[in-house]
Design a protein around this nucleic acid. Structure first.
Length: 642
RNA sequence: GCCGGCGUAGCUCAGUGGUAGAGCAGCUGAUUCGUAAUCAGCAGGUCGGUGGUUCAAUCCCACUCGCCGGCUCCA
């Protein structure tokens, strides 16, 4: 056995890994939750003999909670403890599945009734007893037949279903912890007492295997950490997420609203939100103009025939609203902008010299979303895409993708997003277009990403039926990922609409079409932005940039002068002339997250200076108005967050 | 859409089978004040909607609309 410090020792085959670990001289800060033996993660309760044979030398590496693998094991063991607790309290509950997830774990039970908050408390108390009982997680190997018989006897029908679907030659393992046994691949922590701090968070209904035709199970979500401090920290983060919720901030800051009277998933933008949107859109237009896009506009409805020709009626119907009849002709609210842009392309004969053609539109679309999935600004029924369609020759795909990536990165960076997860989705089973075309387009996407040095993952078979795509999820300050950017190659529409251009050879060729949205939808992007900035928008986006606060009405004249100067210099300024204490004015400006507060008392009026305070609480002291204007201009120019 | 929870003043929330309350916000007045809440008064609600049970419903029941947490799907 070779230890991480490269020392070697001999052990007999039946030695427990926990005993091996005890021999390892370590300077580790945390104790390992498991060990990697020749690269395979194993529980500390396993024996050396369980490790892959064929070698005499076993190289071990510790697996800590701080690694993704360590967390999975730890949370998985936590889920088992919860399952044991539930079975002890509710013997009739049937077990379904209980995996670790990001930040925690869940377990699904068939209980016949939902869990109540009181149930959760009880389960949590029971878990504490189980943890204190120090049950060792014991791994047992069973034959498929034995495993089925075992769980059938216990009435665990879901487990039986799972086992039946395992391949015949699969090694089936169960883990025993005291009186409780669960089907499980493992590995686990050594014993129940190694799960030190946990909390059950919420309950929810969940379908067996995520299929709505299956029975609805009761799911309990929980999380666990190796220390109370780490758990508390995580709970604090959950509070922070709540505090940043764009639905709360949207109301508090008076940015937007969704109202019953108007309809679910339909957003009204209040003046302050609308102003931010305008600034975002101004920026978007400026950048697209620079990058060679042509702006177009299209109507919100079109004849049903158009959607029939585009294939949306066949492939996208479930997201479309019912058609309306106008003078005997059926019209349909648009779920996408592409057919319109295509019709612009088709309006005249195109030459290879014209390509690429890039049509961009902030196009508002309407999609039917099931009522249960709507969520603030992040999931709505009417939204505006920062849409564009690129028509190019096959040999131009990669170069166009590169340009799109450049624009994407610049755009996202401008809004403070520097980290993303990138996915390339490949050909699904049901797809149009030849395998060669798919291959070529997919490799163009990958090659563009490689050129940019952007790390990506392949999402096999997750492409849209009409072509492969790049999806980009942005990570906000709390590390949460949001799907916004999408770049999709389309072989389908050019064919359906018989798009063509005249090539160098004088013959007709079919252009490739690329759909792309950088922010995705303005609504969603705005929602993400609100949470990202916690409502404290950087100066260039702040609806009110400067609040002027005279201390008494003696300074109103001077306050008006300052306001006029700042407004003329191009800033969004409000004055608070109320006969209120300065403390209240500051408090309200703080809560409105106004970046700069200018406090004007007798001193400033006398010296013709400004006393400037930032919303961070930093007091900048007395400034000349010109110095202040310079400062504001610099900050707006950099578009950074202050 | 499905499962569960919730819906009381603009917001946050309390409350009861006998017809409703607080804080903040709003309005009015007083206070002229130096870096996150001055004081007082006033006003504000067909208790989401419809129907039922009851002498009586905001409360109990049914249906319905919406919101929240999930499932699923996606910009």
């Amino acid at each position: 056995m070779r230890f991480p410090d490269r020392t070697e020792r001999r052990f007999s085959n039946d030695t427990l890994l926990s005993d091996v670990l005890a021999q390892a001289k370590s300077s580790w800060k945390e104790s390992p939750v498991a060990l990697k033996v020749n690269g395979t993660v194993m529980g500390l309760g396993q024996r050396l003999s369980d490790a892959t044979a064929g070698t005499d030398l076993f190289v071990i590496d510790p697996v800590f909670f701080s690694s993704p693998e360590g967390q999975e094991i730890y949370r998985h063991s936590s889920a088992h403890i919860m399952a044991q607790a539930v079975k002890e309290l509710f013997p009739n509950a049937k077990l379904a599945i209980g995996p670790p997830i990001e930040d925690g774990f869940y377990y699904d039970f068939d209980l016949g009734r939902p869990f109540t908050p009181e149930d959760l408390d009880k389960v949590e108390r029971q878990m504490k007893e189980i943890a204190a009982a120090h049950y060792v997680f014991e791994r047992k190997v069973l034959s498929k037949q034995d495993a089925i018989r075992f769980f059938e006897e216990k009435g665990e029908t879901y487990k039986v279903e799972l086992i039946r679907e395992l391949p015949e030659n699969e090694t089936i393992t169960v883990y025993e912890q005291g009186p409780f046994t669960d089907l499980c691949r493992g590995p686990h922590v050594l014993s129940t007492q190694h799960v030190l701090a946990f909390k059950l968070l919420t309950t929810a209904g969940a379908y067996w295997r995520g299929d709505e035709r299956n029975p609805m199970l009761q799911r309990i979500y929980g999380t666990s950490f190796p220390s109370q401090e780490a758990l508390d920290q995580h709970l604090k983060r959950l509070e922070e997420i709540k505090r940043r919720d764009h639905r709360r901030l949207g109301r508090d800051l008076d940015l937007y609203n969704v109202m019953d009277e108007i309809g679910p998933g339909l957003v009204i933008w209040h003046p302050k939100g609308a102003l931010i949107r305008k600034l975002i859109e101004d920026f978007w237009r400026e950048q697209h103009q620079r990058h060679g896009y042509d702006f177009v506009y299209s109507p919100h409805i079109a004849r049903l025939d158009l959607w029939r020709q585009s294939g949306h009626l066949d492939f996208y119907r479930e997201n479309m609203y019912a058609p309306m009849s106008i003078e005997g002709i059926e019209y349909e609210l648009k779920p996408m902008n592409c057919p319109f842009h295509i019709m612009i392309y088709k309006s005249r004969l195109r030459s290879y010299r014209d390509l690429p053609i890039r049509y961009a539109e902030l196009g508002t679309v309407y999609r039917y979303e099931r009522s249960g999935v709507l969520h603030g600004l992040l999931r709505v029924r009417g939204f505006t895409q920062d849409d564009a369609h690129l028509f190019c020759r096959p040999d131009q795909i990669e170069q166009e993708i590169l340009k799109v990536l450049d624009l994407t990165v610049f755009t996202l960076k401008t809004f403070g997003f520097n980290e993303y997860e990138i996915y390339v989705s490949t050909r699904p089973e049901k797809a149009v277009g030849s395998p060669e075309n798919w291959e070529r387009a997919t490799s163009a996407l990958e090659s563009a990403l490689k050129t940019k040095g952007m790390a990506y993952r392949i999402d096999p078979g997750e492409g849209v039926f009409y072509g492969p795509k790049i999806d980009l999820k942005i990570k906000d300050v709390l590390g949460r990922a949001w799907q916004c950017t999408t770049v999709q190659v389309d072989f389908n529409l050019p064919q359906r609409f018989k798009l063509s251009y005249i090539g160098e050879d004088g013959k007709e060729h079919q252009p490739i079409m690329i759909h792309r949205a950088l922010m995705g939808s303005i609504e969603r992007f705005f929602g993400v932005l609100i949470e990202h900035y916690a409502g404290a928008f950087p100066l260039w986006l702040a609806p009110v940039q400067v609040k002027i606060m005279p201390i008494t009405d003696q300074q109103h004249g001077y306050a008006d002068d300052v306001a006029r100067t700042l407004i003329e210099a191009g800033f969004r300024v409000e004055t608070d002339p109320r006969n209120e204490k300065i403390g209240l004015k500051i408090r309200e400006a703080e809560m409105a997250k106004v970046p700069y507060m200018v406090i004007l008392g007798a001193r400033e009026a006398q010296s013709r200076k400004l006393s400037v305070r930032k919303r961070s609480g930093d007091n900048l002291g007395e400034l000349d108005i010109t110095a202040f204007v310079d400062r504001l201009n610099g900050e707006v120019g950099q578009r950074v967050s202050s």
